[in-house]
Design a protein around this nucleic acid. Structure first.
Length: 654
RNA sequence: GCCGAUGUAGCUCAGGGGUAGAGCAGCUGAUUCGUAAUCAGCAGGCCGGCGGUUCGAAACCGCCCAUCGGCUCCA
């Protein structure tokens, strides 16, 4: 080994010695093998991702990544974003480029162009992008100084890029890395694959407006969404999977299973059908029982309040845009709308609960005082954000406010974490916790926030739950822990929340008499477990793909008489199941059994009971279990045997 | 709120400047049938709303409403 040699350690521990300055590509070809050299996409040197064109200048650990490594998909999608940007600029001269990152499922690229891209434009771009892949242009890396970078993008007339370059150097960079393929150049951290040909296949998905730097006061850009895969087969598999996800869309299933509806006369407000209402009330009742057994009291408070309440709570200053205002008919109509408003529908329950709390003297012996409410809330959401059950204007939360002493925070947060875990487990929902700290728009001084954040975080640490930090994501009145759940196909939803609030007790001058006979200030915890019933039911529909467990199914059993002469026994069975507390219907259509079964299957009813001559003779039933294919028929059995199967499944698990 | 797309029967969807179509669902009749669709007939629509262009508009244009995909925001 000469002084100019370096020692390279491979992931399996093997070491190789080569001359310093050898490129990774050459190293792989000569020291490992031409097979891997051909398959390689990028590498890591001591864990840092690099291009294969980089040289080995010091002894280090080297790992080579190919299409077999999951990380590589993200790399080719980044390559794909560059390719799309290059063909867009070729096909649509004058279009400016901005940024083009990868996402979980693919990538997007934001363009500045006056005329929006049409679906036909997208097809042309996709075709040209895939031609660019076939042209197999190498990605060429080059480092330049700030002046060179500015000169280049100045000449290209890319004003958004110039802005980004200034930022990058302002943050302390000394050089900028350029990547070119064909005659097109962009800058980015890299790495990129060896050439465009390694991308496989690009599929463009949609075009949408997006604001420059995500700020709605900035220019609106045209965002092209796309994805890329190594092979057409992978892409097809992904497209099929997307298709499957669309089949369990709660809006589609809500119609098919007759759970809920919307009407243009009340945008963002749900019409719950009998089926949907059944699910809603089961969830509401289950939460009531859980709260009762955890020392909560349920209360009801008014929906409509004089604006003086909102001024006191701080909502008038921070939340008015989202509130439905009732205008005073006597008011001077030259005034601004908010000055004519006299009342508002409540967008949150907290101020109502604070009023309730302060209606009488409170003792430390009452604390923690846990107030639970499922009242209706209204928030005037922007038209563009409404979406099925997940984003509505009228909704109900499984809301509660807990008034307690600072010393009780840890125990209470632990109690809440246990309740949350129990509820989500009942649905088979996996969850993760996120700790969110003070946002820019906030009320209360920093000293108060310091205490609130420290207390909540300490309590969270004590629960032992793993959590992720979300700085600046707190509510305007306090820090919070949000609970994200993942549904059966891995999608994440934010549901439960625990929010600590030192500000409201100050504003509402809440107090309790302590053991020292002096008045003290309580702390408030805001908490919800389902979040909103509407969103939660939407998520459950998708999680179960409409196949509700017996305890949640609006119709648990459907009885299918084979012939009219079996109706008498069918009705007898129905009466006995109803008496056992089950939700049961009889199919009185005169269709053939096959059609009756099909209807019951499509309605996703957990059990269908076939009743024909055999069953009447034996005074029994033949249950058929939904969704179990060839094993669906459970065979002739007594009613008691069937009850023994279904009753445990009908029990609410929390 | 912003950008784009869409809106035809209860549902799913064809059609497209010259009298509005299908399947399923519904209703009526026949069929009484054993584990995912029995047959026939009937009925059903101001083609989202308002304006405009045109001899003629469901179709073309404008505005509005709603929905969908995103952005900002969020339970």
């Amino acid at each position: 080994m000469s002084a100019q040699d370096v020692t390279i350690t491979l992931p399996d521990g093997a070491t190789k010695t080569v001359a310093a300055g050898t490129t990774i590509a050459d190293f792989v070809k000569t020291q490992i093998g031409p097979g891997l050299a051909k398959a390689a996409l990028f590498a890591t040197i001591d864990g840092a991702e690099v291009d294969l064109s980089r040289t080995l200048d010091r002894s280090a650990k080297l790992a080579i990544f190919t299409t077999k490594n999951p990380e590589s998909l993200d790399l080719v999608r980044h390559d794909a974003a560059h390719i799309v940007a290059s063909v867009v600029q070729r096909l649509f001269p004058g279009t400016q480029v901005t940024i083009g990152p990868t996402t979980d499922d693919g990538f997007y690229y934001d363009f500045a162009r006056d005329t929006p891209f049409t679906p036909e434009d997208l097809e042309r771009i996709e075709q040209a992008a895939n031609e660019e892949i076939r042209a197999d242009h190498p990605f060429v890396r080059k480092e330049v100084s700030k002046d060179e970078a500015l000169a280049l993008f100045e000449r290209l007339g890319e004003k958004f890029k110039l802005e980004i370059i200034e930022d990058i150097f302002a943050k302390g960079a000394t050089t900028l890395t350029l990547y070119s393929h064909g005659d097109w150049t962009d800058f980015c951290l890299g790495p990129h694959g060896p050439s465009t040909g390694r991308v496989g296949v690009i599929k463009l998905l949609s075009v949408a407006g997006a604001y420059w730097r995500g700020d709605h006061r900035n220019a609106q850009l045209q965002r092209i969404y796309g994805t890329a895969f190594f092979t057409q087969k992978d892409l097809d598999a992904w497209m099929t999977q997307q298709e499957e996800a669309r089949k369990r869309d709660h809006r589609k299933l809500g119609k098919e299973l007759d759970l809920f509806a919307f009407h243009p006369a009340a945008p963002g407000a749900v019409f719950w059908t009998a089926n949907g209402t059944m699910i809603f009330t089961i969830l509401a009742g289950a939460m009531r029982r859980l709260c009762l057994s955890n020392g909560y009291a349920e209360i009801k408070t008014p929906l409509l309040y004089n604006k003086m309440l909102w001024e006191k709570s701080g909502h008038w200053g921070k939340y008015r845009e989202n509130m439905f205002l009732i205008l005073d008919p006597e008011a001077d109509d030259t005034l601004a709308v908010e000055d004519r408003a006299s009342f508002s529908l409540k967008p949150m329950n907290c101020p109502s609960h604070h009023l309730f709390y302060e209606m009488k003297r409170r003792s430390y012996r009452e604390l923690p005082l846990r107030l639970h409410t499922q009242d209706v809330l209204h928030r005037n959401e922007a038209t563009g954000v409404l979406s099925g059950l997940t984003r509505v204007r009228q909704f109900q939360q499984d809301d509660a406010h807990i008034y307690l002493m600072e010393s009780q925070i840890t125990d209470e947060v632990k109690r809440l974490a246990a309740m949350i875990a129990k509820v989500y487990a009942a649905f088979g929902l996996e969850f993760t916790a996120k700790f969110a700290t003070r946002p820019e728009q906030k009320i209360g001084d920093d000293a108060l926030w310091d205490r609130a954040e420290a207390a909540l975080r300490a309590a969270l640490e004590e629960t032992g739950l793993p959590y992720e930090l979300k700085p600046g994501d707190g509510a305007f009145y306090g820090p919070k822990i949000d609970f994200d759940v993942a549904d059966s196909i891995g999608r994440k939803w934010q549901l439960g929340t625990i929010q600590l609030d030192y500000v409201a007790p100050e504003r509402f001058e809440l107090g309790y008499i302590g053991p020292d006979n002096n008045e003290h200030r309580p702390v408030v915890i805001h908490r919800a477990i389902y979040g909103s019933f509407e969103r939660f039911i939407g998520i459950l529909i998708e999680h179960y793909a409409g196949n509700f467990p017996v305890w949640l199914a609006p119709e648990q059993v459907r009885i299918l008489p084979v012939h009219d002469r079996h109706l008498a026994w069918a009705e007898e069975v129905q009466a006995r199941l109803l008496a056992a507390g089950l939700r049961v219907d009889v199919d009185r259509s005169r269709s053939k059994l096959g059609a009756q079964i099909r209807d019951a299957q499509l309605a996703k009813i957990p059990y269908a009971l076939v009743i024909g001559d055999k069953e009447v003779e034996a005074q029994g039933v033949s249950p058929r279990k939904h969704g179990t294919g060839k094993d669906a028929d459970l065979g002739l059995q007594t009613l008691d045997a069937f009850l023994a199967v279904i009753q445990p499944e009908a029990e609410i698990p929390y």
